[in-house]
Design a protein around this nucleic acid. Structure first.
Lengths: 210, 210
DNA sequence: TAGATTGTTAATCGATTAACAATC
DNA sequence: TAGATTGTTAATCGATTAACAATC
């Protein structure tokens, strides 16, 4: 079970906010020794400062009383919260626009997350590329996963089932599903669903009901 | 203020779940007169049946005691919750892989959400296309927005600021920001941030801390 | 030191859940 | 009618917030 320093599993809400703080720091902190207070960062994140400090408190706090946070230190500590002091290696499944979107996304490398390749059923057997990223054929897959220490498979195709089956077969157990289809995870397999619609629809609610 | 039948604003958590139920129904209900109980749908959604019924209860409930929900009726009612009994028209900003991802996403039309065009700074002035979708030049934009009754601008570029400014200038006030950069909304402007990283990082936490 | 801002607590507030009455 | 499953309530549980002690 994932635990913090108080041996309590932090709530998904807290984890999402911590991820948000990290992204905002990457974007908004600049200069040699940038400082940022809970009040400033909370204002950008659109929450209360006390909530931000409570979120940090679950992990022991990242500052010293009387002084704003050191933005660089805070970034490092937040990366550690997510275990990203060591790089994380992804394999994308499906040479689709979704895959291209991730490959071109500047946030991933800044979070120490690295895309090592794209697997596609239509890929040839050697030296192919997709959007400047190695394109892997299914026959080379097992060796590629092993050699590149892939820990997460990212499903980028609208029909996710065949890619899921393939990657489970090759030994992956953790997946990020970007396809709009909900996947029911087999035993022992962890699938994080990412549904764009769950972000769009609440906004539409506001728009149409106001 | 957006309100439900009890004149209470439903929480963002409830709205996200309602969006999820709707997507799951589109995927899993089939047949002529499909029925689905709160137990079945809750199992797919990975929540408790009582939570699902409580979510529906905020809107008066969508079934009759003793019988499972009529899946088709439920879909219609959930669409109405989000005000999507009338079509919603989107304009994408930036002819990028993000835009292509949305254009190819089968969920949008099934939710009565329609992409009317893509605006891009590099677009020519006539009859251009991107991924089989009309490509609009900035000079034709005001007329296009008016004629197509666009209500949401979707920012698909990694550098979102210039597109945001352009679309505000042309009269849009509601935006869905898919870029990794957080935008600070000017007064009177509503921006829904969609951050992929907030989905990925909590999963990485579990992976690395277990 | 005085000022600033954090860490920490406990009260408040809101979301989830179980239980069962209602009813088709 | 009996069975099934919803609608609804109220108790429980957890998240948010304000307040302030701690301390650099």
């Amino acid at each position: 079970m994932p635990k913090n320093i108080f041996n309590i599993t932090p709530s998904p809400l807290t984890l999402r906010r911590l991820a948000k703080y990290l992204c905002l720091l990457n974007q908004f902190s600049q200069g040699e020794n940038p400082e940022i207070s809970s009040a400033k960062l909370a204002k950008i994140a659109n929450i209360k400062p006390s909530q931000l400090r409570q979120d940090f408190h679950y992990f022991g706090g990242f500052g010293k009383p009387g002084h704003p946070y050191d933005a660089n230190l805070l970034k490092e500590e937040l990366l550690k919260v997510f275990g990203l002091e060591k790089p994380l290696h992804l394999l994308l499944a499906g040479a689709t626009p979704w895959a291209a979107t991730l490959i071109q996304c500047p946030s991933l490398p800044s979070l120490n997350v690295h895309i090592k390749g794209v697997v596609d059923f239509t890929a040839g057997t050697i030296d192919d590329e997709f959007s400047n990223c190695p394109l892997i054929s299914t026959s080379n897959l097992a060796e590629f996963i092993e050699r590149n220490q892939i820990s997460v498979g990212v499903i980028c195709a609208n029909e996710p089932e065949t890619y899921l089956r393939l990657l489970i077969e090759k030994g992956l157990t953790v997946f990020w599903n970007l396809s709009p289809k909900h996947l029911i995870p087999p035993l022992g397999i962890r699938i994080q669903q990412e549904s764009l619609m769950c972000g769009l629809l609440p906004m539409v609610y506001e728009l149409r009901k106001s």
